[in-house]
């Protein structure tokens, strides 16, 4: 008989996210993972710039708002001076894979001992649906109305594959939040990343495939199918690196 209680790190008033937006799902399971490792009193949440900044009015723990793209730099500065705190940055694909690409790769390469959780929904949600580094080939956005054309716009960035090729990162995994199994696996993965962090193992990275009903111009239910037939085949979920598993 499963029991399911609301996590303590999120408010009991509705989030600012659109109906069916999986940012909500993501922050919910992060809150559950924070509870699971007993850090809800002291966890440090680094906020990016984008839809996930709306967590400012939804998350119940300590928060620091970073400039666009700089969450992992802010996390570096904070964690280096507070090594005992659980620190995570939760970023969207514009924040992490475009303007913040140097920051995330460098933080990962330095093996900074914090967790970055990356919500990949292939668009810039907050600003109205522009092309993101992860926008799929052929996917239409407000800045590539005919669909992303690789000749002039390149290919969607695979962050897990990039980061797992670095030496320092300890745990790198990708999950899709459009199915119950995906959500459960993601929660386990985030909890594992937090445990590794608390054991001082170094940099952990979780990529969460999410949606954007508003800017994909699809109903919430339709985004689930879109992810199954488009997103997931390209951004393949799985554990890309787990130094702890080889022990």
């Amino acid at each position: 008989m499963a029991e399911y209680k609301r996590a303590s790190s999120i408010l009991s008033t509705p989030s600012g996210f659109c109906p069916g937006c999986m940012h909500s799902t993501a922050i919910k399971i992060i809150a559950e993972a924070v509870d699971a490792v007993g850090q809800s009193e002291t966890a440090m949440h680094i906020l990016p710039v984008g839809c996930s900044t709306l967590n400012l009015a939804y998350w119940k723990g300590d928060m620091i708002g970073a400039a666009h793209g700089r969450a992992s730099a802010v996390a570096t500065g904070f964690k280096r001076c507070a090594p005992d705190r659980l620190v995570f940055a939760y970023q969207g694909d514009g924040d992490l894979a475009a303007i913040g690409l140097a920051e995330i790769m460098s933080a990962a390469n330095r093996g900074e001992n914090f967790t970055v959780i990356f919500a990949n929904n292939q668009t810039y949600g907050m600003t109205g649906g522009q092309m993101a580094p992860t926008t799929l080939v052929g996917q239409k956005t407000t800045t590539c109305r005919e669909g992303r054309n690789p000749e002039s716009m390149g290919y969607p960035l695979k962050m897990c594959e990039l980061i797992s090729n670095l030496e320092a990162p300890y745990f790198v995994a990708r999950y899709a939040l459009n199915t119950p199994k995906g959500v459960i696996d993601a929660r386990k993965g985030i909890t594992k990343a937090f445990k590794y962090q608390l054991e001082g193992k170094g940099f952990t990275f979780i990529e969460l495939l999410t949606n954007c009903p508003t800017n994909w111009k699809l109903s919430p239910l339709a985004t689930i199918d879109y992810m199954n037939s488009n997103t997931i085949p390209y951004f393949v979920p799985g554990v890309y690196k787990d130094k702890g598993a080889q022990l």
Binding site: Y4, M22, S24, K28, I184
Partner: peptide, 8 residues
């Protein structure tokens, strides 16, 4: 249902 619900 509780797991998949985005809003908890």
């Amino acid at each position: 249902c509780a797991v998949i619900c985005p809003e908890g």
